[in-house]
Nucleic acid binder design. Structure first.
Lengths: 184, 184
DNA sequence: TTTATTTGGAAACGATCATTCCCTATTATC
DNA sequence: GATAATAGGGAATGATCGTTTCCAAATAAA
């Protein structure tokens, strides 16, 4: 089932919700029409399940990236680097289902909007926590305000996905090098 | 005609391309179906015209915002402030047609992708130019690299539109205050 | 006034969409 | 081994989409 959902994630990321037909879904999930409707109530339910799985995987990937840093500052740096990497290449061109949901659905689908904001806030407070760790371990100056800086970094990460989907090249080292000035 | 296009912009921003039906368009443009097809070849042509007009208006608004600054650094600050303002409130909830096109169409529509990247690059080099002005007038230190910083700021602005569409509150003064550290 | 010409509006069309229904294997139960 | 139950696949269905076509009204020309 997860392998089928991975296929759904792939096609939903690439084309978004409305441009993905049931035919696209059955092809990507390697399931027949009837089987999809046996497992999910409707297309919206497939999208919701794909979103949940995608968000969970991405949360874990972000936490793994942070774990590669030795202090708060380095942890933030690795999170940003991870975001740039995921916004590039084939995955970057495919796109992010969270950004896609925010842009395509949040205006007309309160349930999806709630999940988008939840994911954004989770990541935001995770980054704010890393900044506070940096305060504690001395790697980030105290005058760097955690909450505002974290919200700005969330904007940055979501923007990376947009720019990456438009296929502008993103140099991880240089962009993150510039972004780290926010922690100076 | 421009007033009709403004209606099209409104509905395309809010719902995106695929979720906007011809019925939505005729209502928003205050035109009957036949009249829309008399003025445009098809739905895609309406979207393209709406995109062009939106992009031109936004370019001018961004340049007007920059003109409010007395030096390079202040000009960048006003551009960022302008983006936060446009990403908030009813306009922020409505969304940006450039971001929408990047997310919804750039994967499958090369013509639209080209226009998205053109708009991003135009804004990027505009910001880079402002930073170089700051270099010249002494308001921005020379060690602030213009191109990379400008690209990062483009990511930031596009991310602001995503986060604003998800209806997270954005405090302009505080966010821009944090972002201005990039020019320190 | 009458006749072209143009503009706006609504019904009609084929195509495609999401969804349902039914049939066929396959597995589990007795 | 026979039967019941379940899961998967694909054709049928009603609705909606984008598009076309035709008609009426208004304007300009004669």
């Amino acid at each position: 089932m997860d392998t089928a959902l991975d296929g759904a994630i792939r096609v939903f990321c690439e084309r978004g919700y409305h441009a993905t037909s049931i035919g696209d879904l059955t092809a990507a999930m390697r399931l027949a029409t009837g089987s999809v409707y046996k497992a999910f109530r409707d297309k919206h339910a497939v999208f919701l399940a794909a979103f949940e799985r995608y968000a969970a995987v991405r949360r874990e990937q972000t936490r793994n990236a942070a774990a590669r840093g030795a202090n708060g500052r380095e942890q933030v740096r690795h999170v940003l680097l991870s975001y740039v990497e995921h916004s590039q290449g084939s995955e970057g061109r495919r796109g992010c289902i969270v950004v896609g949901s925010a842009v395509e659905l949040s205006a007309v689908d309160p349930a999806m909007r709630a999940r988008v904001t939840a994911q954004l806030k989770t990541n935001e407070s995770f980054i704010a926590g890393l900044i506070r760790e940096g305060h504690a371990d001395g790697s980030i100056p105290r005058h760097v305000e955690a909450d505002d800086t974290a919200r700005l970094m969330i904007c940055l990460t979501q923007g990376l996905r947009v720019v990456g989907k438009a296929r502008l090249p993103l140099n991880g080292d240089r962009l993150v090098g510039v972004a780290m000035r926010l922690l100076a």
